[in-house]
């Protein structure tokens, strides 16, 4: 363990993050932390800045402020170096490589790994997690259903064996039964030791599995609390849960 983690620093530490797109502020002084072993939900309506937060952390969007992962200053890292440090990211809209096979997509997920036996070991773990993918390994990824594409996007991110996995709207546009599967997998991955930062519009479901949650509103952090407290917070409920809190 590096000395920085033993000194009580969070696994992911975002401080005063601001991002602008062509003069428009997408994020203003956003701070959040994810401790090792947690599931943290990042909520907010469309355009609140959830995706931008993840993109900044991965190095895909330029920002001011600071992002530390496992004690490393990510400002000094290119996106590919961020992945090597153990920060995985299954992006918004899945972004799978549709012209490649499922197997090729998964192999790319382990691009940073040279050992074939290690890649095979991780592949075995992913198909155990998502048995649906096993039958589809040699199929072109573009022919998968929406749910299967989401499974592939998560599986591909798992191939880098991340310590912290950032998931951007994994339930978007999926049938309720598939959503259940995905959330079940997120929970079981966490139980096996992967820390999760979960971006969701499906706030109810996300907060039910989350230890803590944050709520973004038009680029600024509005609420921060435990998952259960946010579920019961009337202001959050009204704005983001679409109904009275479920008791």
């Amino acid at each position: 363990m590096s000395p920085s983690t033993s000194s009580g620093q969070a696994l992911l530490e975002v401080r005063d993050l601001s991002v602008s797109y062509g003069g428009i502020r997408a994020l203003r002084d956003v701070s959040l932390r994810v401790e090792e072993g947690e599931i943290v939900a990042l909520l907010g309506s469309n355009g609140a800045g959830k995706t931008t937060t993840l993109r900044a952390a991965s190095g895909l969007a330029p920002y001011s402020g600071s992002v530390f992962f496992d004690g490393n200053d990510l400002r000094k890292c290119s996106p590919d170096q961020v992945v090597r440090l153990g920060l995985g990211h299954a992006p918004e809209g899945r972004r799978i490589f549709t012209r490649m096979t499922v197997r090729e997509n998964l192999a790319l997920g382990a691009y940073t790994v040279r050992s074939n036996s290690e890649i095979e070991r991780r592949l075995a773990f992913v198909v155990e997690t998502f048995p649906r993918l096993e039958e589809r390994l040699s199929q072109s990824a573009g022919t998968l259903s929406g749910g299967e594409q989401q499974m592939l996007a998560i599986g591909r991110a798992l191939m880098s064996a991340p310590r912290l996995l950032m998931l951007d709207e994994p339930s978007l546009g999926l049938a309720p039964i598939v959503v259940q599967t995905i959330f079940g997998v997120i929970k079981s991955l966490n139980e096996r030791g992967t820390t999760i930062l979960l971006v969701e519009q499906n706030a109810q479901q996300a907060l039910r599995i989350a230890n803590r949650g944050y709520v973004l509103e038009t680029g600024e952090m509005r609420f921060e609390d435990t998952g259960s407290a946010l579920l019961e917070n009337p202001a959050v409920a009204q704005a983001y849960l679409g109904a009275a809190p479920i008791g």
């Binding site: 996106p79 590919d80 990211h89 972004r95 490589f97 549709t98 490649m100 790319l108 940073t112 880098s160």
Partner: peptide, 22 residues
């Protein structure tokens, strides 16, 4: 592996970076 990285970069540059491709 490098050829696959080239195809990935051609299809989706951001996603390729999230795979750890420089």
């Amino acid at each position: 592996r490098l050829g696959r990285a080239m195809r990935a970069t051609a299809e989706d540059r951001d996603a390729a970076q999230l795979m750890g491709i420089n």
